[in-house]
Design a binder for these strands. Sequence first.
DNA 1: TAATACAGTACCAGTATAGTCCTATATTGA
DNA 2: TCAATATAGGACTATACTGGTACTGTATTA
Lengths: 146, 146
Amino acid sequence: MLRISKFTDYGTVILALMADNPASTHSAASIAQQVGLPGSTVSKLLKMMNRSGLLTSCRGKQGGYSLAKAPQEISLADVVEALEGPFGVTECSRQNGLCQLEERCAIRHQWQGVNGVIHNALQQVSLAALQQPSTVTGAPDFKANA
Amino acid sequence: MLRISKFTDYGTVILALMADNPASTHSAASIAQQVGLPGSTVSKLLKMMNRSGLLTSCRGKQGGYSLAKAPQEISLADVVEALEGPFGVTECSRQNGLCQLEERCAIRHQWQGVNGVIHNALQQVSLAALQQPSTVTGAPDFKANA
DNA sequence: TAATACAGTACCAGTATAGTCCTATATTGA
DNA sequence: TCAATATAGGACTATACTGGTACTGTATTA
């Protein structure tokens, strides 16, 4: 299924919330309360995004998580890769050698092109853009060069 | 995971093969032999794509499957929808009422925008384009209207 | 030193995926 | 009419992934 996981979806919701106050630190509990998700789930997500470098963390009283970069500098592609691993809409666009059809596949390069277009689309949407009423629009631009 | 299923991947390979000879009928067995996939799997895929209206079928001797439309008129979006159901990269862009966060989600409309961009990208790649050496390129066009 | 909050990991249930198999039905040609 | 071919429609299985929970450990602060 061409769909992001719920975790990634939740991740973007959490990050968008944090982007409202990029300077302050947010505890897992307070985030969970605000987005309406189980604390354990939110905590797991925050840990994953911290390990991927999207967040910074601080333990102890007054501890919590903060954005590691400015909201303008974190894209949806970053979030997807942080929570789902290397980007790739097909087996072959993720890593060579995974697909049994690789040798005889006639359309591998075309899928890799599509992969790039979708990746690009996600890269162009930042956390800052997510906060705007309706930021994402327009159609991709394709060229038939043959 | 933002990835098409193997079935969808196989489906595009099969359709691209059929698009080489759009006029003739292809039996499941001959297709399986050519693409190097198990006959039962190919047969299942062909049945699904037939039911979705991408193919037409004919039983009996000399029977088989043919493309229901010209290769130019079948897009990757059509194939994805035929084999994976309604298009949607998030729960909320697939159908209303599926996501528990729907009420309080601040970024739902932005994701729906991203969904549209990706759908558009897939719609612009036809089976005919898949046959070309390197057809898909370019970056999507975004507008920040706020 | 106790409370707070993150770090890491293991675990479980539910669901999706990929693949196989079996029976039924339609078509064709001898 | 009969037999061979080929699709139609399922049921079924094993595996992997997903989403969610729980538990133990560690760092920070008052």
